[in-house]
Write a protein that binds this DNA or RNA. Structure first.
Lengths: 211, 211
DNA sequence: TAGATTGTTAATCGATTAACAATC
DNA sequence: TAGATTGTTAATCGATTAACAATC
């Protein structure tokens, strides 16, 4: 089986962002090559698993005695994850969390332009960190005009389903939902729940087991 | 096999928060019973999978012809997830994201008290939404005093590893990291990466496949 | 009762781990 | 060369799906 040509399993794909993060960290320190054993140790995985994962996405094999060339690996993983084909995103709900995300600069590294935020309250309209906050009524128009592919939903729980419906009506097919509410959406709309409290609670559980 | 007595798989456990969110939504509408088929349809799972999951955590079986009693199920899942044993958390980094999380009220439903935030910059010290922001120097003392179990790391990327080291030195055993950086931690410290850009990029990918 | 719905056992599928040959 | 490291094939493990019996 040639490198980078097989079907990649879901489990492997889900680990790729973590590899990328790790490899960028090592590259930043000036390291040029890294072995599967080193990656495995630092990331808490098995070395064989790492080799299998990397074989699936890397365009050329690692070198025995050296390991993998980090720069090359980073390129391959970014290409695999599609961080090169750009997508436009918007934020719906310009409260504290929405504004914080709007001001966040890190999205550009992942092929995402967060172009604007929207809010139902006129008081929130304006700009944050150089990016515009529009009234909710303009969502549809702007989503169409800029072919917005994904919306980040940061309204309060009670407004979430209604805002969600407006996002769907605007033709946006993917929603990253920060409201701790199950959203009812038509088939074909991708929803991902980003529940801070759940992540935190899960972590508490892990930590607690060691007692 | 009796209900609620078997070893619960990791996959099952990871779905529990989603069930909880869904069931609370239905309970809020006044629904009292729900069938595995209905849950499966609304959540995009298989009915058999749902029954198997619920059998593992529920204290009594569902009723043929009725389904599962929602109120009971919510209790059982919350108990299973440990949302009843409380834990204290702190935020490290009182920038936009840190302050937004500090002001967020939803953690209490998950058995988590976010008691304070910390920041290295004196300008950030004060209070947000009734909760204190302390200088970084006080982290260790307060972590010890209140037996803080988990830290939410919301400092800029460049400050992340250093802040992480301070968290570990303060005796906190679990870190929810929002900085897009791989953290090096001693064995036994649980780290979870909450990378907004990665979540968003993954969602873009899903949406794009339907084209 | 009849029918909807549950719970369980067996079969399939997918992912990880173990063992080993290939390579620089 | 010798040794570290890779890639692959086979074996194990875990999770999901399919088929069916049990129950209210």
């Amino acid at each position: 089986m040639k490198h980078g040509e097989a079907a990649v399993s879901k489990a492997t794909e889900s680990r790729m962002p973590a590899y990328l993060r790790y490899l960028k960290g090592e590259a930043g320190k000036g390291v040029e090559y890294v072995s599967s054993a080193a990656i495995a140790k630092d990331m808490g995985l098995s070395a064989v698993g790492v080799r299998k994962d990397l074989a699936l996405v890397s365009s050329r094999p690692g070198k025995p005695r050296f390991g993998f060339e980090i720069k090359l690996l980073i390129e391959d993983i970014e290409k695999f994850l599609g961080y090169h084909r750009w997508a436009n995103a918007v934020i719906v709900g310009a409260g504290g969390l929405g504004r914080a995300i709007l001001a966040y600069e890190g999205f550009e590294n992942y092929g995402i332009h967060v172009i604007a935020a929207f809010d139902a309250s006129p008081a929130k309209v304006g700009a944050v960190g150089g990016k515009p906050v529009y009234p909710m009524e303009q969502l549809k128009e702007i989503a169409r005009r800029f072919s917005v592919r994904v919306a980040i939903l940061t309204v309060p729980r009670s407004a979430a389903q209604e805002a969600c419906d407006e996002i769907v009506a605007a033709g946006i097919g993917a929603i990253l939902n920060f409201a701790p509410v199950h959203l009812h959406v038509p088939e074909g709309i991708a929803v991902r729940y980003e529940d801070l409290a759940v992540s935190l609670a899960a972590l508490c559980g892990e930590g607690a087991e060691d007692q």
